[in-house]
Lab assay of single mutants.
Amino acid sequence: TYYTVKSGDTANKIAAQYGVSVANLRSWNGISGDLIFVGQKLIVKKG
């Protein structure tokens, strides 16, 4: 599943929404920190 980042989103918020850990969200998308951008497409695997 892909999720498009919206204004006000955070890695924590997206992870919680899908029931996954922030560490997994980072791993699936090659993100090292919490910096995400509006319009960015993230791979999300439901927990």
Rank of each mutant, 00 (worst) to 15 (best):
Thr1Lys: 11
Thr1Cys: 15
Thr1Asp: 12
Thr1Ile: 14
Thr1Met: 14
Thr1Asn: 11
Thr1Ser: 11
Thr1Tyr: 14
Tyr2Arg: 06
Tyr2Lys: 06
Tyr2Gln: 07
Tyr2Thr: 09
Tyr2Cys: 12
Tyr2Ser: 07
Tyr2Val: 09
Tyr2Trp: 14
Tyr2Phe: 11
Tyr3Lys: 00
Tyr3Cys: 08
Tyr3Ile: 08
Tyr3Asp: 02
Tyr3Gly: 02
Thr4Pro: 03
Thr4His: 08
Thr4Met: 08
Thr4Arg: 07
Thr4Trp: 11
Val5Phe: 04
Val5Lys: 00
Lys6Ile: 10
Lys6Asp: 05
Lys6Ala: 09
Lys6Glu: 09
Lys6Asn: 07
Lys6Pro: 02
Lys6Phe: 04
Ser7Pro: 15
Ser7His: 13
Ser7Tyr: 14
Ser7Lys: 13
Ser7Val: 15
Ser7Ile: 14
Gly8Thr: 06
Gly8Arg: 03
Gly8Ala: 05
Gly8His: 06
Gly8Ser: 06
Gly8Lys: 05
Asp9Thr: 01
Asp9Ser: 00
Asp9Phe: 01
Asp9Asn: 01
Asp9His: 01
Asp9Glu: 03
Asp9Gly: 00
Asp9Arg: 00
Thr10Gly: 02
Thr10Arg: 03
Thr10Ala: 04
Thr10Pro: 01
Thr10Ile: 04
Thr10Lys: 04
Thr10Met: 03
Thr10Ser: 08
Ala11Asp: 06
Ala11Trp: 15
Ala11Pro: 15
Ala11Thr: 15
Ala11Cys: 14
Ala11Asn: 04
Ala11Phe: 15
Ala11Gly: 04
Ala11Lys: 03
Asn12Met: 15
Lys13Leu: 10
Lys13His: 09
Lys13Thr: 14
Lys13Ala: 12
Lys13Trp: 12
Lys13Asn: 10
Ile14Glu: 00
Ile14Ser: 00
Ile14Arg: 00
Ile14Lys: 00
Ile14Leu: 05
Ile14Thr: 00
Ile14Gly: 00
Ala15Asn: 01
Ala15His: 02
Ala15Val: 02
Ala15Thr: 03
Ala15Asp: 01
Ala16Glu: 13
Ala16His: 11
Ala16Gly: 08
Ala16Asp: 11
Ala16Ser: 10
Gln17Glu: 13
Gln17Arg: 12
Gln17Ser: 10
Gln17Ala: 13
Gln17Phe: 12
Gln17Val: 10
Gln17Lys: 13
Gln17His: 10
Gln17Trp: 12
Tyr18Pro: 01
Tyr18Leu: 12
Tyr18Trp: 14
Tyr18His: 13
Tyr18Arg: 03
Tyr18Ser: 05
Tyr18Met: 10
Gly19Val: 04
Gly19Met: 07
Gly19Ala: 07
Gly19Ser: 08
Gly19Thr: 05
Gly19Trp: 05
Gly19Ile: 04
Gly19Cys: 10
Gly19Pro: 01
Gly19Asn: 10
Val20Arg: 00
Val20Gln: 04
Val20Met: 09
Val20Trp: 02
Val20Ala: 04
Val20Ser: 03
Val20Thr: 08
Ser21Val: 04
Ser21Glu: 08
Ser21Tyr: 03
Ser21Thr: 13
Val22Ser: 05
Val22Glu: 10
Val22Trp: 06
Val22Arg: 03
Ala23Val: 10
Ala23Phe: 06
Ala23Ser: 10
Asn24Asp: 15
Asn24Leu: 13
Asn24Gly: 05
Asn24Trp: 08
Leu25Arg: 00
Leu25Glu: 01
Leu25Asp: 01
Leu25Ile: 09
Arg26Glu: 15
Arg26Asp: 04
Arg26Tyr: 13
Arg26Val: 13
Arg26His: 09
Ser27Arg: 12
Trp28Ala: 04
Trp28Asp: 04
Trp28Tyr: 04
Trp28Glu: 03
Trp28Pro: 01
Trp28Thr: 03
Asn29Lys: 00
Asn29Thr: 01
Asn29Gly: 02
Asn29Ile: 02
Asn29His: 01
Asn29Tyr: 02
Asn29Arg: 00
Asn29Phe: 03
Asn29Cys: 03
Gly30Glu: 11
Gly30His: 11
Gly30Asn: 15
Gly30Gln: 11
Gly30Thr: 07
Gly30Phe: 09
Ile31Gln: 05
Ile31Met: 12
Ile31Glu: 05
Ile31Ser: 05
Ile31Thr: 05
Ile31Ala: 05
Ile31Arg: 02
Ile31Asn: 05
Ile31Cys: 10
Ser32Met: 13
Ser32Lys: 13
Ser32Gly: 09
Ser32Arg: 10
Ser32Gln: 14
Ser32Asp: 14
Gly33Leu: 14
Gly33Gln: 08
Gly33Pro: 07
Gly33Phe: 09
Gly33Cys: 08
Gly33His: 08
Gly33Asn: 11
Asp34Gly: 08
Asp34Lys: 07
Asp34Pro: 06
Asp34His: 08
Asp34Cys: 10
Asp34Asn: 10
Asp34Trp: 07
Asp34Leu: 08
Leu35Pro: 08
Leu35Val: 12
Leu35Met: 13
Leu35Tyr: 12
Leu35Gly: 11
Leu35Cys: 14
Leu35Thr: 13
Leu35Lys: 13
Leu35His: 12
Ile36Cys: 04
Ile36Pro: 05
Ile36His: 02
Phe37Gly: 06
Phe37Leu: 09
Phe37Gln: 09
Phe37Met: 09
Phe37Val: 11
Phe37Lys: 10
Val38Ala: 09
Val38Ser: 06
Val38Arg: 05
Val38Met: 07
Val38Glu: 10
Val38Lys: 06
Val38Gln: 07
Gly39Cys: 04
Gly39Phe: 04
Gly39Gln: 02
Gly39Arg: 02
Gly39Ser: 04
Gly39Lys: 03
Gly39Glu: 03
Gln40Tyr: 03
Gln40Ala: 06
Gln40Ile: 06
Gln40Trp: 04
Gln40Met: 11
Gln40Pro: 02
Gln40Ser: 07
Lys41Pro: 05
Lys41Cys: 13
Lys41Trp: 06
Lys41Arg: 13
Lys41Tyr: 07
Lys41Ala: 08
Lys41Leu: 13
Lys41His: 10
Lys41Gly: 05
Lys41Gln: 12
Lys41Asp: 07
Leu42Lys: 01
Leu42His: 00
Leu42Phe: 02
Leu42Glu: 01
Leu42Met: 06
Leu42Cys: 02
Leu42Val: 06
Leu42Trp: 01
Ile43Gly: 02
Ile43Leu: 15
Ile43Cys: 09
Ile43Asn: 04
Ile43Arg: 08
Ile43His: 05
Ile43Val: 10
Ile43Lys: 07
Ile43Asp: 03
Ile43Tyr: 08
Val44Gly: 01
Val44Gln: 01
Val44Ala: 02
Val44Met: 05
Val44Ile: 13
Val44Arg: 00
Val44His: 00
Val44Tyr: 03
Lys45Trp: 12
Lys45Phe: 14
Lys45His: 12
Lys45Asp: 11
Lys45Gly: 13
Lys46Met: 15
Lys46Ser: 11
Lys46Leu: 15
Lys46Arg: 12
Lys46Glu: 12
Lys46Asn: 12
Lys46Thr: 13
Gly47Asp: 13
Gly47Pro: 15
Gly47Trp: 11
